[in-house]
Simulated assay, not measured.
Amino acid sequence: MKVKNEKFNYTEWFSADEINEHSKDWLSQLLFIKDEHQFLLNLIQTFSTKKISKNQLNQLEDFKNAINENEIMLHSLISQVKKHMNQLKILVDGVNQLEMEHGYKKTHKELFMSMNQYMLDYRTVKERGFAKLTSIMKITKPSNNNE
């Protein structure tokens, strides 16, 4: 007797409700990051108005550029997740469309991997940026309002 060796993808095990929950969670995370980007850009602007060295100003500019580059991917992911959420009906419409359903689940898996990579990349951007801000804060003396 020959044993059939089948490969199963993780998406084959998720229900439509679980896939929908993933998508809603992703969108929530991405929208939070969008707000966080604005906060970080405002924070950078605050630091850039202080008396800092040219090197420190360059560090702030690097952080700002990293956020702006990250934001490009952010907007793309937001669009992809929203589109993915709108197409969920493929799984729940009761119509047997195996090819489309398979495509939808494949897209979900790709989004899952893209989200994981994006979150890792974003975390790296923030860690490096905060390290730069921290070093600038340590070097920069607080302004004295009594002068």
Rank of each mutant, 00 (worst) to 15 (best):
S135G: 10
T49G: 13
E110F: 06
M115E: 15
F39E: 07
T46V: 12
F14I: 08
S79M: 13
A66Y: 02
H37S: 05
M113T: 07
F14W: 12
N58E: 11
L91N: 01
M119W: 06
Q117L: 15
K82T: 08
K126N: 09
I19E: 00
L88C: 05
F130Q: 08
H84F: 01
S48K: 14
R128H: 09
D62A: 13
L111R: 00
N20H: 06
M137E: 12
I19C: 03
M85G: 08
G94F: 01
L98G: 09
E99A: 11
M137V: 10
T107Q: 13
M115Q: 13
N42W: 02
L91G: 02
V81R: 01
N96E: 13
E110R: 10
H102M: 10
K82H: 09
L88D: 00
E36D: 15
R128L: 12
L31G: 04
V95G: 00
Q45V: 10
S53I: 11
L27M: 09
L77R: 02
T107G: 05
L31K: 03
K83D: 15
L133S: 04
Q29Y: 06
Q59S: 04
T46I: 15
K82P: 03
K89N: 11
E101K: 02
K50R: 14
N68C: 13
K82R: 10
L57P: 00
K105L: 08
L120S: 13
S23G: 09
A66W: 01
K83Q: 15
V92M: 06
M100K: 09
Q45R: 06
S79R: 07
L43P: 01
E69K: 13
L27V: 12
S53M: 07
E18K: 00
Y104S: 00
L60Y: 01
K34L: 12
H84T: 03
F130C: 04
N42G: 04
L31N: 11
W13T: 05
S48Q: 13
I136G: 01
T107N: 12
L30M: 11
H22C: 09
F32S: 15
W13E: 08
L40Y: 00
S23F: 07
Q59K: 05
W13V: 04
F32W: 12
I72P: 03
K89L: 07
Q29F: 04
W13F: 09
Y104V: 03
T49Y: 11
E36G: 02
Q45K: 09
Q80P: 03
I78Y: 02
L98Y: 00
L77H: 05
K138D: 05
N42T: 05
E101S: 07
Q29T: 12
Y104D: 00
N58W: 05
M100T: 10
T134R: 14
V81D: 01
N58P: 04
D121H: 07
D121N: 10
M100Y: 04
M137D: 13
T124V: 11
L91V: 04
L133F: 01
K132W: 08
M73Y: 08
L57R: 03
S15L: 03
Q80D: 14
L88W: 02
L43N: 07
K64Y: 04
I33S: 01
I78H: 04
N55L: 10
N65M: 05
G129N: 04
S135M: 06
D35M: 08
Q97H: 05
D62C: 06
H37T: 02
D25F: 11
K106F: 09
E71P: 12
Q97C: 05
